[in-house]
């Protein structure tokens, strides 16, 4: 089967060890996690994990079901890039002296729609949000012209193109079903 990049979204209770519970499902199948980002979700007490990995569809289906099976996981699902709006954020540290000496930094900032976060005597920190290729291209250009002292890129954050956050629907449904004596 064809391998491509899948984005796995996981909603979980906020308790210790949750990340481990999720990553072991990937580890068992020797799937490399490309990016990972974790943060509180819009619903209080529930955490959201966004994970990207290259694999095939059969495998990602099983992975998602095995994650979902863990007791403290509320919901896990996967998407392909065409179903998502997604971003990454990157920070670039460059040398102030070199920037001043060489000039031309404003062209790069305009070209990549980046912004200046901080200007210090010894360094300047730029920020860019965008797709992986975009943050990478800016890195390449800076590296070639001025040189980059430090570079960091976040994991992917993603939102589905659907109207609503699916978890809130699910939580509502659980309440409805509870009154009927079944869980789902």
């Amino acid at each position: 089967m064809e391998k491509k990049l899948y984005t796995v979204t996981v909603f979980s209770e906020n308790i210790p060890g949750l990340l481990n519970q999720i990553t072991i499902v990937f580890t068992r199948r020797q799937i490399n996690i490309e990016t990972l980002s974790v943060s509180p979700s819009a619903i209080k007490g529930i955490h959201k994990f966004t994970i990207t990995a290259y694999t095939d569809e059969d495998t990602i289906k099983n992975v998602v079901k095995q994650i979902d099976k863990r007791i403290d996981i509320l919901k896990a699902y996967y998407n392909t890039d065409d179903e998502l709006i997604y971003q990454e954020i990157a920070l670039y540290k460059i040398e102030t002296g070199k920037v001043l000496a060489m000039g031309g930094i404003e062209t790069i900032i305009r070209k990549y729609d980046a912004r200046v976060l901080e200007v210090l005597e010894n360094c300047i920190v730029l920020e860019k949000t965008g797709l992986y290729e975009e943050t990478q291209n800016m890195f390449n250009e800076l590296q070639q012209s001025i040189g980059v002292l430090q570079f960091i890129r976040s994991g992917r954050v993603a939102i589905t193109k659907d109207k609503k956050e699916r978890l809130s629907d699910m939580l509502k449904k659980i309440q409805e079903y509870r009154s009927k004596g079944v869980d789902v």
Binding site: E13, I71, D72, I73, I174, Y177, G181, D183
Partner: peptide
């Protein structure tokens, strides 16, 4: 008899 993240009883 209920955990919101674990739903074993299916209709």
């Amino acid at each position: 008899d209920f955990i919101r993240s674990y739903l074993p009883n299916r209709s």
